[in-house]
C-alpha cells in the first residue's frame, strides 16, 4: 500500500517483456538440452531449478509481482509455503514407510 498509484497496474515497458520472453525461450532450450545429458540425480533437480527460475521471471515481471502490494507477495509466499507443507508432510509418511516397520 506504500505506492498506491503504481500498485496493480504499473505499465511494464515492452522491452522488459521481450527480455523476459527471450530468457524464457532460452530456458526451454536449456531444459531440453540439459535433459539429454546424463547428469544423474541432477537431471530432475536442474530441470526443476530452471523451471523455478522461469516461473519466477513470469511471476515477477509478466505478472508484475515485483511492483505489487505487499499482500499480493504475501499470498504468493503463503501459497508456496502451503505447497511445501503438503509435499513435505506427505513425503514424511512415504519416506518413513520405506524405512521399514509400519
Amino acid at each position: 500500500m506504500s505506492e498506491p498509484q503504481e500498485s496493480g497496474h504499473r505499465i511494464i515497458n515492452p522491452r522488459v517483456s521481450f527480455l523476459v520472453y527471450l530468457a524464457l525461450v532460452a530456458g526451454v532450450g536449456l531444459t531440453i538440452v540439459a535433459s539429454y545429458q546424463n547428469l544423474g540425480i541432477f537431471n530432475p533437480i536442474l530441470a526443476v531449478a530452471i523451471a523455478l527460475v522461469q516461473a519466477s521471471l513470469v511471476a515477477l515481471f509478466s505478472m508484475h509481482l515485483k511492483y505489487s502490494p505487499r499482500v499480493s507477495k504475501l499470498s504468493v509466499g503463503s501459497g508456496i509455503f502451503m505447497l511445501l507443507t503438503l509435499f513435505a508432510m506427505v513425503l514424511l509418511d512415504y519416506m518413513s514407510r520405506a524405512w521399514g516397520s509400519w
Partner: peptide, 8 residues
C-alpha cells in the same frame, strides 16, 4: 507457469 513445470 503451470506448463513451465509440466513440460520438464
Amino acid at each position: 507457469i503451470i506448463w513451465i513445470f509440466l513440460f520438464p
